[in-house]
Design a protein around this nucleic acid. Structure first.
Lengths: 218, 218
DNA sequence: TTTAATTTTTAGACAAGTCTAAAAATTAGT
DNA sequence: ACTAATTTTTAGACTTGTCTAAAAATTAAA
C-alpha cells in the first residue's frame, strides 16, 4: 500500500494540519521530517498522484479525506503500540516514541485489532492523545492549556503538548503525571510563571511548562 | 546497523546452513528469498565486506561467528514475536509467520528484553523451535523425526519441520499439536504411512506428514 | 512598485536494492 | 578429457528516496 517513507510524510502532514489551517508548506514538512525541501516536493507529487493529498505548486498540500483516513490509521497504530510499551513492557512515557515510530509501519489488520482488544480498547495514549478508532474517527477530549487558566481554576492533567523526552522527564521529576488534579494557586505577572498545587504539594512552573500541559476542567 | 534486506539474507543463510554443511550456494539463497541469483551475488559481496559472511567467488557463502550472532538475534526476535502473537493476541500457529517477518526488524534492545520477560522467558516458539538467548546461544532440544521411529516407540510432539500454513492447518484438523503424546501403532511397508495413537485416538498419517513432525522421546 | 529575500521547484546526481542479458566459471555427461 | 548443461558473476539499467545547486515563483521591503 504505502511505503514507510510515504507513511511518514502522510502522518507529518496530518500533524502539521492540526495547528495550521490551509496548505502545509514544503518547508514546514521538510523541517518536521528533517529532510530537504526538494525531497518534499518529490514526495508530495507522488502522494498527490495517489490521491492522498491535494497539491498545487507553491501552494502547499492538504490531506484528502482518504489521506486523513490513512493518517488516522497510522496514528492509531502508533498510539496503540505506545500504550502496549508503557502498560505491558515497562517503558516510561518518554521512551516510547522512537520504538512506536518503527512499530507503526507493521502491516497486519489482525495484529492491530487484537492488540487493541488485548490492551482493553484504550482511548488515550500515554501522553493523553486520543487513539483513533478502527474507522479513523478521532475523539478529541475537551482540554485546555494550563497556561490559559486563571487563579483558582482547577482540573485534571489529561495530556501534554510537547512529548520530548526532556519535558516528560522534567514532569516525572516534579511529580506531575496524567490524571493528577492541578489547581492554580497564583500566576506571577512578571514572567507568567504558575504556582500550582498538585498531589498535595505546591510548586512553581514556568509559563513554558504551563503552555505544554493540558487540563480537563470539571 | 543492518538493513531489513541485509537481515533477511543473513537469516536465510543461517537457516540454509542448518541442513547443509559447507558454502551456501547463490542459487539456494535466491530460491529461498524468491529473488534472482545476480541480486544475491551483489548482496553477498556487501555482507562479505561487513564481515558477516565468508565469500569466495563460485564457492557459496558461510556465516562468520559474527554473522551467526547477528542471525541468532534476528531469529530470537522473530520467535519471541511469534510467541507473543500466539500467547497474547490469539493468533494461530499458522498465522504468525508473515507478521513476525516484519516485527523481527524492529530495532530496540529494550523492547526485546522486556518482551522476553513479559512472555515469561519462553524457550520455544509456537512451532517448537528454540528461541536463542540474548547472547545468541541456541539450545537445541533433543528431538527426532517421527518417521525415524519404529513400531511401539512413543514420545511427545515437540516441533514441526515444515511451518507452512497448509501443513499446520492439517495438523489442527487432525488434532495433532505440540505437547501431544504420540505412539507408533503400525508402519505400512507399502507406502511408509504411519498409524499413530494420539489423544486417545488412532489415525493414519502419510510418510510425508511423519517426516515433518518432531518427537521427543521421554 | 521595483528590488531584495525567501520559498519552492527543477534538473541532475547518487546510494540501495533489484532486474535482465550476456559472459565466465564450474560441474556433469559421454 | 572434452563438450554440454548449469551455475554464478558481471555489466548495465531501473526504482525509490534522497541530495545539491541552480532556476523560477512568491513574498517582503523600501
Amino acid at each position: 500500500m504505502f511505503s514507510q517513507s510515504e507513511e511518514n510524510y502522510i502522518k507529518t502532514v496530518y500533524h502539521l494540519s492540526i495547528d495550521f489551517d490551509g496548505g502545509i508548506s514544503t518547508n514546514a514538512i521538510a523541517k518536521a521530517l528533517e529532510t530537504k525541501a526538494s525531497s518534499v516536493t518529490d514526495m508530495v507529487k507522488k502522494l498527490s498522484e495517489k490521491e492522498v493529498v491535494i497539491y498545487k505548486k507553491y501552494q502547499g498540500v492538504t490531506l484528502t479525506d482518504f489521506g486523513k483516513k490513512v493518517a488516522a490509521s497510522i496514528i492509531r497504530k502508533h498510539r496503540l503500540w505506545e500504550v502496549f510499551l508503557v502498560d505491558k513492557l515497562n517503558f516510561s512515557w518518554d521512551e516510547v516514541h522512537e520504538v512506536a515510530e518503527q512499530l507503526e509501519h507493521i502491516k497486519s489488520p489482525k495484529l492491530i485489532s487484537e492488540l487493541d482488544a488485548f490492551l482493553g480498547y484504550p482511548k488515550q495514549d500515554p501522553h493523553g492523545d486520543p487513539i483513533p478508532d478502527a474507522e479513523g474517527n478521532i475523539h478529541q477530549i475537551n482540554k485546555k492549556l494550563l497556561s490559559l487558566l486563571s487563579v483558582g481554576e482547577e482540573g485534571v492533567c489529561v495530556g501534554v503538548d510537547d512529548t520530548s523526552s526532556e519535558f516528560l522527564k522534567f514532569l516525572d521529576k516534579q511529580g506531575i503525571g496524567l490524571g493528577n488534579r492541578i489547581k492554580i494557586v497564583e500566576i506571577e505577572p512578571f514572567d507568567g510563571s504558575f504556582v500550582i498545587e498538585v498531589n498535595e504539594k505546591v510548586l512553581t512552573i514556568s509559563n513554558k511548562i504551563a503552555s505544554n500541559l493540558y487540563i480537563q476542567k470539571r
